[in-house]
Design a protein around this nucleic acid. Sequence first.
DNA 1: GCCGTCCATGTAAACGATTCCACGAGGAGG
DNA 2: CCTCCTCGTGGAATCGTTTACATGGACGGC
Lengths: 339, 339
Amino acid sequence: MTSIKDVAAEAGLSVATVSRVLNDHPSVSADARTRVLAAVETLGYRPNAVARSLRTDQTHALGLVISDVLNPYFTELARSVEEEARALGYSVIIGNADERPDLQDHHVRTLLDRRIDGLLVSPTDGGSPLMLDAARAGTPMVFVDRWIPGVDVPVVRSDGREAVRDLVAHLHRLGHRRVAIIAGPAATTTGSERVEAFRAALAEHGIPLPDTYTGQGDFQADSGRRVTEGFLDLPEPPEVVFAADNLMALGALDAIRARGLRVPDDIALAAFDDIRWFVHTDPPITAIAQPTGELGRAAVRALVDRIEGRPPESVTLPARLVVRRSCGESPSPVQRSTT
Amino acid sequence: MTSIKDVAAEAGLSVATVSRVLNDHPSVSADARTRVLAAVETLGYRPNAVARSLRTDQTHALGLVISDVLNPYFTELARSVEEEARALGYSVIIGNADERPDLQDHHVRTLLDRRIDGLLVSPTDGGSPLMLDAARAGTPMVFVDRWIPGVDVPVVRSDGREAVRDLVAHLHRLGHRRVAIIAGPAATTTGSERVEAFRAALAEHGIPLPDTYTGQGDFQADSGRRVTEGFLDLPEPPEVVFAADNLMALGALDAIRARGLRVPDDIALAAFDDIRWFVHTDPPITAIAQPTGELGRAAVRALVDRIEGRPPESVTLPARLVVRRSCGESPSPVQRSTT
DNA sequence: GCCGTCCATGTAAACGATTCCACGAGGAGG
DNA sequence: CCTCCTCGTGGAATCGTTTACATGGACGGC
């Protein structure tokens, strides 16, 4: 590989001058500049980012540790994160934790070893010592979607409470009274919050949420299937199943279908996280949509603010209900299905 | 950050010895080893991967330039790539090209600047000078899914010809004669190959594939929608639409539905690339499934072979037809829907 | 008892950039 | 004409590692 020395030799100048041209430092003559640029051109020289990082102590790379790449919600998040980061001059290195704390730790560790400038995390659990240490040690960090209470790190997330209330009102209006939820892991904020929001909204209508109607999932399709089977085996199965994420909704759909039951006639279904395919499932699924792209962009902006010395801001954006047909025909004007 | 010097000081040894312990070089006493390890422990020292890379000229990172992260096929590919890479001791840096050659170039460039050890590419086009130069210059590289003819780079892909023939036989058996295809960009191998395979298979049954029935898409949902609308506007619309990827199938479904038509009664639909949601669409979609995970793993193995000096192997794996209901009820025993 | 090996360790030179500091030329101002 | 500043440039230190080479002690064989 050609180095800055080769360029200097080719241009008949010192490496210092070449470096100055490349970083457009003001104090360099027009003549030197053109000679350097010509040399760069003929040699096809590209600066070695590794060496540059070592010297400047910046990598211009952000780490993104995501709970599960196969989940379309996180895929979209990752995409918007990369887009905004690119616009701000950063690369993104994605680590997929697959909802496993050990994998999450692995990625955090290697990202820190690679000296990324900042870390975007959607924690799969309450936070490992490694991550908490890093946060305390001053690694620029931002939580996105999920967060860890009690840690002094900005959080960018969406608040689904209002949308959950809308959903419950919708269900109530359709006459449903026995409603169940497939919860996410209690160790995650989104896992517990969604249950809480659901329970609170139900209470407003005087509907209880008994333990038998709260199943414990792990945000993966299999758990949705398993929990739903449990619900269907109950002497008095629920009339509605609300899955706390889209993959568990997929699993629920599998389970319902495997029994030869139909949605929404035999049992209604709703999900947290809206994805494009929900328009085309049989039936189209009523879901709570997060402003995913905006979340990703806001998270990057917060992180880069932190990295570049500006005060970062936590951001909370509202989610909204998208009514489709999976809970029954809605005669009301709330209907607002988007394509 | 604590450096190797701090560790050396804490252990009362030289940095060389510390380094030897860390890279478990044979020639180091048991006493020194324990002292170094203790020092590492108390200081919480982690080696700086940037400095290490500069010195050793290896980053233990692979670049993966993917055509579109939002496409579930590529998401799954990315996931398996990361898994296998991790097992072999490498990290993966993903670049999303969004089917745009300029973005692809951007990512290739930054990945090369970061001195990744090797590059995995699924090219969006015929290959930019940048990428061809890199390949010629000896950057370890492997093409996955798509490739560029005439470049001396191993290719890991799947061959869909047999499956396409099965699909056409299936369509023919169901009585369909007027069949159309939504093709991918001709600049991509998968774009042109799938049309060719389809045309060849149709010919075996004496069915022509007129120009009016070949629509030009770009592997994105919007193009699938647009092309399908064109088909439906024809005086004699096709009886079947075959989309060359899953996103264009989604767009086709949108378009068909927007006209109030039904699949498969009014028009049949099939897709290349099987994804989990196809089981739950209305109706479940007949698709050609690639061994995506195996492709990703094989690609990584080939690339790492190349990097570590072993001869890399091109790999071609067969795709297979998964019959569901979107082309009409199949009375035949070919039925082999998987969940 | 001496010499040659081998082993553990240390010293110092790289890797490829950035950047502090020194230096010389040239211009402005007295 | 001398002094002082400014500006362009180069030399060299530095970032945190790895590793070739040197060194010195222990040990075995004769």
